[in-house]
Design a protein around this nucleic acid. Structure first.
Length: 152
DNA sequence: GCCAACGTTGGC
DNA sequence: GCCAACGTTGGC
């Protein structure tokens, strides 16, 4: 089993939005970055656990735990001309972009803030805390994953 | 709102 | 293939 961190802007789709979805499940679509795409398509497997992270907001940080419930499959928002994620280069025959489905495991009791995550040498290798990181999906080591959750 | 960091685009 | 210009991300 692997561990991941996925960013979302709470104004667009936050942990409470996930909690209110049917089956508390949501297709994670709209990712338009090749590095992230490769992880969605090739590496994320059913059962993998995900730290749900709020970005670009008042208190950026980890707010919940989710689980992959469907492994990578084509992101058909790319095929839809009306979607803001439309990409004419991606077709059903040759999809470029992929998504996974994630389900809520639970919300954390508190937000584990980015500023807090930056304090610990144990987390120094975490892509999230490294300068200039812009990936919306990133791997988290098992030890780092457990360390972060113990901060709760 | 500012701006640094990064990815993508397109002219050459 | 280079690289300047541009757009986006996301913390602060």
């Amino acid at each position: 089993m692997k561990y991941w961190l996925m960013k979302s802007e709470p104004e667009a789709f936050g942990i409470d939005d996930l909690a209110n979805r049917p089956d508390q499940t949501e297709p994670w679509d709209g990712v338009r970055n090749y590095q992230a795409r490769n992880m969605l398509r090739d590496e994320m497997k059913v059962g993998d656990e995900v730290l749900f992270y709020h970005s670009n907001c008042k208190e950026p940080g980890v707010v919940g735990i989710a689980r992959i419930v469907k492994a990578g499959y084509p992101d058909d928002t790319a095929f839809n001309p009306d979607s803001k994620y439309h990409d004419p280069k991606s077709t059903a025959d040759r999809p470029i972009w992929y998504r996974v489905d994630v389900a809520l495991v639970r919300k954390l009791k508190r937000t584990i803030g980015l500023s807090e995550l930056k304090l610990y040498p144990e987390l120094a290798d975490l892509a999230l805390v490294r300068k200039g990181n812009r990936l919306s999906v990133m791997p988290v080591g098992e030890a780092e994953y457990r360390f972060i959750l113990e901060l709760e």
